[in-house]
């Protein structure tokens, strides 16, 4: 989204990676600062909020777990939008965006899984249950890892981006189906004794820190995504210059 939402309004400006880099250089310090502020605010709110009378302090895991889970979805959406950018407009920045987002998505998904597991131990008495949400997040995690592996297996970055884009979109269409089928599967197998997380409604006291943390995580994602895109662009520039150097050298001896 970072590039695409802008890319549609100011496509010509952003078509040029140099301008994009200049923009990143301007935005990134502010975005990072804002992210840090929001994270500090969210964590303070999270730690000062009262614990749940049933779950005690463990409920605070939610302030990390839920935003991470939400970002694991949003990150895939960003990748899907970038994939459309790659396939329809063949825009190199869209390639970079999708490639940079995949490890971030995997990271947030992993955080969601680990915190879910840590939360599950005191709540359910076990590190892992085949709960519908955990399971579908786990499948999502596998998809992220598969896409990263695919991207690494190909030498030509442009081709890798286009081929991955097709798979990203197929995955995007499939995620609701996977979610639905895992829910179905879960209602068949779920033992009734497991405490469902979250409870029926969330108290306003938990809601505020949660919202602030969600905003902070979203900002964090965009800051990391922009930085990762910048790094990828610089990496490709270096690769291009190295190629140029190799060609120049062979040109001198060859002719």
């Amino acid at each position: 989204m970072s590039d695409n939402s802008l890319a549609i309004t100011k496509f010509s400006d952003l078509a040029n990676p140099t301008r994009f880099l200049a923009l990143v250089a301007r935005i990134l310090p502010w975005l990072s600062g804002l992210t840090a502020l929001a994270l500090v605010a969210g964590l303070c709110l999270g730690f000062t909020a009262e614990g749940d009378y049933q779950q005690g302090d463990t409920v605070r895991i939610m302030y990390i777990h839920v935003p991470a889970a939400w970002l694991s979805m949003m990150c895939y959406t960003v990748m899907a939008i970038s994939a459309i950018g790659t396939l329809v407009w063949r825009h190199p920045l869209a390639d970079v965006s999708a490639k940079a987002a995949a490890p971030l998505g995997a990271g947030f998904t992993l955080i969601a899984l680990i915190t879910g597991s840590l939360w599950g131990k005191p709540m359910w008495g076990t590190w892992w249950v085949w709960d519908a949400r955990l399971t579908s997040v786990f499948v999502l995690f596998l998809m992220y890892l598969g896409l990263i592996a695919l991207n690494r297996a190909m030498d030509d970055p442009a081709k890798a981006a286009r081929v991955s884009a097709v798979l990203i979109l197929v995955g995007f269409v499939n995620i609701p189906i996977i979610k639905f089928s895992v829910d179905w599967w879960n209602t068949l197998h779920q033992p009734a004794s497991v405490v469902r997380m979250g409870g029926p409604t969330i108290d306003a006291e938990f809601l505020w820190p949660l919202l602030v943390m969600a905003v902070a995580f979203t900002l964090l994602f965009f800051a990391l995504h922009l930085a990762a895109m910048r790094n990828e662009i610089l990496r490709r520039r270096i690769a291009a210059q190295r190629r140029m150097a190799a060609r120049m050298a062979s040109g001198r001896e060859g002719r």
Binding site: P17, T18, R237, A240, Q241, M244
Partner: peptide, 11 residues
């Protein structure tokens, strides 16, 4: 052959 590296994309 070789009419340049496609570097301008990244410049």
């Amino acid at each position: 052959g070789f009419s340049g590296v496609n570097a301008d994309v990244w410049e």
